[in-house]
Design a binder for these strands. Structure first.
Length: 475
DNA sequence: TTTTGAGTTGTTCGA
DNA sequence: GTCGAACAACTCAAA
């Protein structure tokens, strides 16, 4: 029986897995391989939270394979020589994988494909994580899109629920191909010590089963009313699928099809969620065509923008939820404890850092990269550039979030603040949104909470507006 | 080629 | 309390 290496990367599932499917369809014995090679990811090697998740996702994938009579071969080192050596050991004639779109990884993979083919192997990649490949959506002139709405109009009109593929109950054993044993998962991704990730797993279950459960929960409950509920910080009104999608534990085609076919859902709710998947598509489209955006502003005017000096004390207070602005601190602490932050709150904390503190968005992007379990180069970059106003399809410069009004609107009971900044839970509601306006209550109930925000809200807003307006005139 | 319509997520001010 | 206007042009995408 001919053998194919199925190289798993950010597609840690068996269901609707195009590389595995191709191997089986063509009668190849699949040898599942995972290679730990963080130094091949350029400046964006996975962060700590991401690795904590990946460890569990790989363990889950490994268990799924073993349940079916196969197993995951885990390797550590350089991808190309390891693939070549493993192909030689197993007599594999093919190497199959699902694509990734990070610029450094795209380049690496192109080289690997070239070299494998030069060595006489069949090397082939597939779309395993997007509704559309970045190059499958184009303007009528054949150009890439820079604005979300026309991008999504075009893509949405093209989308048809595809036939998804179920993983078989049994898989052939790699032992039959003489597969080697590789290294232990613990050797490449040891458990965090101390267990700072404990809070992550109260909210999330990495792996294919956890991903399916999250989708079922969302489609069965939160999807109804999603368009409104998605903005309320304390509720589980969003899908919380982002880490599962990042690691490819569930097929995005299956997610889209499930939501598209859900019964009794208003069109507004359904389309709103599909548009969120659309933002993920758009982010990958932009990163593919403008690979510099992870480092540099897409809008070139911002190359010269005078960001504030990154004062370490200010930055540290932002990171650790000690800004003195309750909704910002709640968000940053949710991130620290759970590895995740509600989307609405992400915008608020990002606006605080880039507008009120006027710090370069890359400081925020880097912190998110290290602390988010859903850290994804395309989405993270897109989110930060959008909020900072440096992307092409960006927030207008005058859109500066007021963290007090945002808290009132999207956390009207103050429950989100109380949950993540418990020292403020004893404050009555109006004071909980803006404690500096009630110094006596603050002193009595929360003596350790900052007396005042890092910067005055009105002054910060004015300074940001002035700085961003100056850029306009400078052009 | 030129024209036209439109653009995720907001805030503030004054009537 | 509610509502509309102002905030700023500019670029994108399609007709």
């Amino acid at each position: 029986m001919a053998v194919a290496l199925v190289w798993f990367r950010d597609d840690l599932r068996l269901d609707d897995q195009p590389a595995l499917r191709a191997a089986l369809d063509r009668g190849w014995l699949p040898v599942p391989v995972y290679i730990h090679a963080p130094d091949e990811e350029g400046a964006w090697a996975p962060g700590a939270a991401s690795n904590a998740w990946r460890r569990r996702a790989l363990a889950a994938l490994s268990a799924e394979l073993e349940r079916r009579g196969s197993r995951l071969l885990v390797l550590h080192g350089h991808s190309l020589p390891l693939l070549q050596a493993t192909a030689a050991l197993t007599g594999a004639e093919a190497v199959l994988w699902a694509r990734r779109y990070e610029p450094a990884v795209e380049q690496r993979d192109a080289r690997i494909k070239r070299e494998l083919r030069r060595a006489g192997l069949h090397a082939e990649s597939f779309n395993g994580s997007l509704l559309f490949e970045p190059w499958e959506v184009a303007t009528k002139q054949g150009d890439p899109y820079r604005v979300f709405t026309p991008f999504w109009r075009t893509a949405r009109a093209q989308w048809r629920a595809p036939a998804t593929w179920d993983a078989p109950a049994r898989l052939p054993s790699p032992e039959d191909a003489g597969a080697p044993h590789g290294v232990a998962l613990d050797d490449i991704l040891p458990a965090p010590r101390p267990a700072w990730d404990a809070g992550f797993w109260q909210r999330f279950t990495p792996g294919e089963t956890g991903a399916r459960q999250a989708l079922a929960r969302f489609a069965g409950r939160a999807l109804d009313g999603y368009a409104d509920a998605r903005d309320r910080a304390v509720e589980a009104g969003t899908s919380r699928l982002s880490p599962h999608l990042h690691f490819g534990e569930i097929s995005v085609q299956r997610v889209a099809a499930t939501v598209n076919d859900a019964d009794g859902i208003a069109d507004g709710d359904r389309e709103r969620f599909l548009a969120e998947l659309g933002w993920r598509e758009f982010a990958h489209h932009v990163l593919h065509y403008f690979p510099q955006v992870a480092e540099r502003p897409l809008d070139p005017r911002f190359e010269d923008f005078r960001w504030a000096r990154p004062l370490q004390a200010r930055l540290a207070a932002w990171r650790h939820g000690r800004t003195g602005v309750p909704i910002v601190d709640a968000g940053m602490r949710e991130l620290w404890h759970t590895g995740w932050m509600h989307n609405r709150v992400r915008m608020v904390v990002a606006s605080w850092l880039t507008k009120h503190l006027r710090m370069h968005w890359r400081h925020g992007a880097r912190w998110f990269w290290d602390t988010l379990v859903d850290a994804d180069l395309a989405n993270n970059t897109q989110g930060w550039q959008w909020t900072a106003g440096t992307g092409a399809d960006a927030a207008p410069y005058f859109r500066v979030f007021n963290p007090v009004s945002q808290a009132r609107r999207f956390d009207p009971e103050g429950a989100y603040i109380a949950r993540w900044v418990p020292e403020l839970a004893a404050l009555p509601l109006p004071a909980r949104f803006a404690p500096w306006e009630h110094p006596e209550l603050l002193r009595r109930h929360a003596p350790d909470y900052p007396r005042t925000p890092q910067v005055d809200l009105a002054e910060g807003r004015q300074a940001a507006l002035a700085a961003f307006a100056a850029l306009r005139h400078a052009r």
